[in-house]
């Protein structure tokens, strides 16, 4: 706590605000690049349903990759700097978003899709106007999970020379400066929780249909009540 309040902690190149902005910058960069790759790919695979099993399998398999090892390997092979850690972060952010886009689009109501096709919509229109809106909650879930994963991994990336809040923990450990480690850890923890809450709020704003602004994520709709049988 003393560390957090020390003079100069909240200003300058090594101050907390600069480190927070760096951390958010790396995260946004990696998540955006990963989204540009993963979301269209997942949506198309979800629409055609070709290669769906492979997507789920690869996404689950990549979970087992140790983030630290991936970061170190990329940096050893591509050199220090922004490029290698960012590529590693992109690689780790792709699977959850790919899985979210795929399962969201593939899970769109079959009746709605058939109706759209029957009305004469082209495949492209069906994908963009029917399946993608229906996929929004799952896509957002994937984006949120990917973002948190990237924030956590960007912290570790301080070990391979990236800036951001992980610097306090890695440098603190090197200097055996435990207050600095702890202060940095607390700031990262708070940042993650704030980002999660902001993304949850944004998610509610952009979710179409009746789930909008609802506190809980979309609930599966119950079966329609069989009114005819219910009457005596």
């Amino acid at each position: 706590m003393e560390w957090l309040g020390a003079p100069g902690r909240w200003s300058g190149d090594d101050g907390i605000p600069v480190r927070v902005l760096e951390h958010l910058g790396y995260t946004a960069l990696a998540v955006l690049i990963a989204a540009v790759i993963a979301l269209p790919l997942g949506a198309v695979i979800g629409h055609t349903r070709r290669g769906g099993l492979a997507v789920v399998g690869v996404a689950n398999g990549l979970r087992a990759l140790p983030e630290l090892g991936v970061l170190v390997l990329f940096v050893l092979l591509l050199g220090l700097g922004l490029l290698a850690p960012t590529l590693a972060l992109v690689l780790l952010a792709i699977p959850p978003m790919l899985a979210g886009a795929y399962s969201g689009v593939a899970g769109a109501d079959g009746g709605a899709v058939d109706a759209a096709r029957g009305m004469g919509m082209r495949e492209r229109q069906i994908l963009l106007q029917v399946e993608v809106p229906a996929a929004v909650p799952l896509v957002l879930g994937g984006v949120r999970f990917a973002t948190l994963q990237v924030i956590a991994t960007a912290t570790i990336a301080a070990y391979v020379g990236l800036g951001g809040l992980g610097r306090y923990i890695i440098d603190g450990f090197a200097l055996r400066d435990f207050p600095q480690m702890l202060g940095g850890a607390l700031v990262v923890a708070v940042l993650s929780i704030v980002v999660e809450l902001v993304l949850q709020g944004l998610g509610r704003l952009v979710t179409p249909g009746p789930d909008r602004l609802r506190l809980r994520p979309a609930r599966p709709e119950s079966d329609p009540v069989p009114t005819r049988e219910a009457r005596p």
Binding site: R63, E67, V75, L76
Partner: peptide, 28 residues
């Protein structure tokens, strides 16, 4: 299993030790 390796950053041994030590020795 993947997060255990993070412990190597604060000196806790696991297969993550090969990652940190390999980084220090630049040994992919």
């Amino acid at each position: 299993f993947s997060l255990v390796t993070v412990g190597a950053l604060v000196g806790i041994d696991s297969l993550g030790t090969l990652m940190t030590s390999g980084f220090e020795q630049a040994y992919p």
